[in-house]
Design a protein around this nucleic acid. Structure first.
Length: 586
RNA sequence: CGGGGCGUAGCGCAGCCUGGUAGCGCACUCGGUUCGGGACCGAGGAGUCGGAGGUUCAAAUCCUCUCGCCCCGACCA
């Protein structure tokens, strides 16, 4: 492609609203343009990258035996009404009416639609297993789109769905998809972790997230430095201390703490370590069997409560902090003085580490007072479980290694769904014994357009993007300096030879000053840059510099005559699918 | 939805407080010089000042309503 024929509108300035590196660079390099909130055009370079990501995803899905289909994005409401998601999905669902007043929506995900295919077309155990997938535009009316392609209202997703006869088959399908995902993420050149996730709202037993490790990521994850274990902090189970086996006789001592409400204040006032204090937090279950009940969670003062863990314990979708009025009613004290002693044990949830505190300090449930020398069992009861958040430095629950913390962007998520959709929608088959059974499902998503942005978040520097060869918009960026006939002819020969060898070349043939061309080349981030100038031509040489080499003086000089062969070999080497690296498994 | 903030040329912004001439940088067009890391000189084109209503002799500027957007939180690929 000749730069002069392309549409690559680069600029020095980014839109004011762009805060993420990927958003800034995609805009500046002319890959995308904003059309509305969370809605983007893909300009030619951006679309080339998107298509390359799609191609890798498709190749690996196909290799894993999945079958590509295309379901509609415009959907009649009846399918989501069948499973209740028409109501449950809430405002995130983009709804619309047709001219006859019928309810429709744009698809945010396709469990119902694919299950409808399955219940109509999969009749027999002989049809199983089947995995269907599609690469399609999804629509979600996000509360807050942000970060350019990182979170849009319209985005490209690969969604796959497996159908099996039983749990065992579903586990096998899940494993095949897991391996396909590992290959995909490896081929994309990403550093990532497969982490244990909270499957919460979507339901299902087994689930894993593919988290791309980036400092700017929104998700907090922990990973063991010694074994495979990695988990979203929402899902991570800390390795906790065992409760003490013996306790002294006696009872807590009431101490006046007139103005000390927070853990920090109390610990400082009493000159004790925060780890010796007990933090009592009141929450209300949003729904489920214990909906609206006010419960107390107790964690060690230096720990944070994991609200997801508490929600799991209460079998609710979400827990909400109690209001000050609730706190005062339940503890007979102003906020800041709540404690477990005397609290209804049936509504008390005590973290393992809090239960292990020997002679701790807790709120007295009396405004202005705390209790010293508080022991679990002797002084208060309640269910002991893990409800605190994991922190870096915790021991790994599996190997005992040390947990490190990372930030990540969720780029893929795989689930075993069980019969959550097949059961209510009546997706059944006839087994070998002529029994009617319900299909067991799994679902597997990859944010394809998000991956474009995520790749940049992980691969960029101050000057621009640094694409991995596998998804770069072009393999090679040929920069010619000057317009004289001999130079152009030499460049043309090289260009043709590279193209003939299957190398994708962007040739900057513009009548621009060298500085402009180099700046644009760095911004666009094509992995290999070839420079051909008058001096080089006279010496019969071209310069070859990888985008990852920051020092322009370190370009490699290659004889013009063999340049096409050398460069084509480099490109092929970089495109080779890396040997399957041992990846952490959940 | 809660809390902040912004809508003025394609992009980034000033002007608004204290009403009266719509401006700067980048980009764009033309001419010239320049040419290995975002050049310089000269000339030019381009704006319903988000929209509606009001106050006023006069509104980008003051008032009311409204639409859109962004940032920080709770959710997701």
């Amino acid at each position: 492609m000749l730069f002069s024929h392309a549409l690559i509108p680069t600029s020095k300035e980014a839109p004011a609203d762009a805060t993420n590196a990927s958003h800034v660079l995609l805009s500046r390099a002319g890959f995308i343009r904003r059309v509305g909130a969370g809605i983007y055009d893909f300009l030619p370079l951006g679309y080339r990258v998107l298509r390359k990501v799609q191609t890798i995803v498709r190749e690996e899905m196909d290799r894993a035996g999945a079958l590509e289909v295309l379901m509609p994005a415009l959907l009649p409401a009846e399918y989501f009404k069948e499973t209740g998601r028409w109501d449950l999905y809430g405002d995130v669902l983009l709804r619309l009416r047709d001219r006859k007043g019928g309810d429709y929506h744009l698809g945010p995900t396709h469990e119902e639609i694919v299950t409808d295919i399955a219940r109509r077309e999969i009749k027999s155990w002989r049809d199983l297993p089947k995995t269907l997938y599609q690469v399609q535009v999804k629509f979600r009316d996000e509360p807050r789109p942000r970060g350019g392609l990182l979170r849009g209202r319209e985005f490209v997703m690969k969604d796959a769905y497996s159908f099996d006869a039983d749990e065992k088959g579903a586990a096998e399908s899940y494993e095949r998809m897991r391996q396909a995902y590992v290959r995909i993420f490896d081929r994309l050149g990403l550093t990532y972790r497969m982490v244990q996730a909270d499957s919460g709202a979507i339901g299902g037993s087994t689930s894993a997230e593919f988290q791309v490790l980036v400092g700017s990521g929104e998700d907090a994850i922990v990973a063991c430095d010694d074994c495979d274990y990695a988990a979203n902090v929402e899902a991570a189970e800390p390795a906790s201390a065992a409760p003490p086996t013996t306790q002294p006789a006696g009872k807590p001592e009431r101490v006046a703490t007139p103005t000390q409400r927070t853990i920090d204040e109390v610990a400082a006032f009493l000159a004790i370590d925060k780890a010796r204090t007990l933090k009592a937090l009141l929450y209300v279950a949003k729904d489920g069997p214990r909906a609206k009940e006010v419960v107390m969670a107790v964690v060690r003062g230096d720990h944070a409560l994991n609200e997801f863990a508490l929600a799991r314990a209460l079998k609710t979708s979400e827990v909400l902090p109690a209001t000050d009025a609730d706190v005062e009613r339940e503890t007979k004290a102003k906020p800041g003085f709540a404690g477990p002693v005397g609290f209804d044990a049936a509504r008390l949830f005590v973290d393992r580490d809090a239960a292990a505190v020997e002679g701790g300090v807790a709120g007295a449930n009396e405004t202005g007072f705390h209790l010293k020398d508080v022991w679990y069992a002797r002084d208060f009861g309640g269910e002991v479980l893990s409800v605190r958040q994991v922190v870096a430095g915790d021991r790994c629950p599996r190997s005992g290694g040390k947990l490190e913390s990372y930030k990540g962007i969720e780029a893929g998520h795989i689930f075993i769904l069980g019969t959550k959709y097949s059961q209510p929608m009546g997706a059944t088959f006839i087994d070998e014994k002529q029994q009617t059974r319900t299909l067991v499902m799994g679902c597997y998503g990859i944010g394809v357009s998000r991956l474009v942005a995520t790749t940049i978040e992980q691969h960029h520097d101050d000057n621009g993007m640094r694409w991995p060869m596998s998804v770069a918009p072009y393999h090679v960026h040929l920069v010619t300096l000057g317009k004289d006939d001999a130079l152009v002819a030499a460049a043309r020969t090289l260009y043709d030879a590279l193209e003939a060898a299957g190398v994708e070349v962007l040739w900057d043939d513009r009548d621009e000053r060298p500085g402009v061309k180099f700046k644009d080349a760095d911004l666009i981030g094509i992995p290999l840059r070839i420079t051909l100038g008058a001096k080089g031509l006279a010496a019969g040489q071209v310069e070859l510099k990888p985008r990852t080499e920051p020092d322009p003086k370190k370009a490699e000089l290659i004889p013009l005559a063999s340049a096409a062969d050398v460069i084509a070999a480099r490109v092929r080497a970089a495109m080779a699918v890396p040997a399957a690296l041992a990846r952490p498994s959940v």
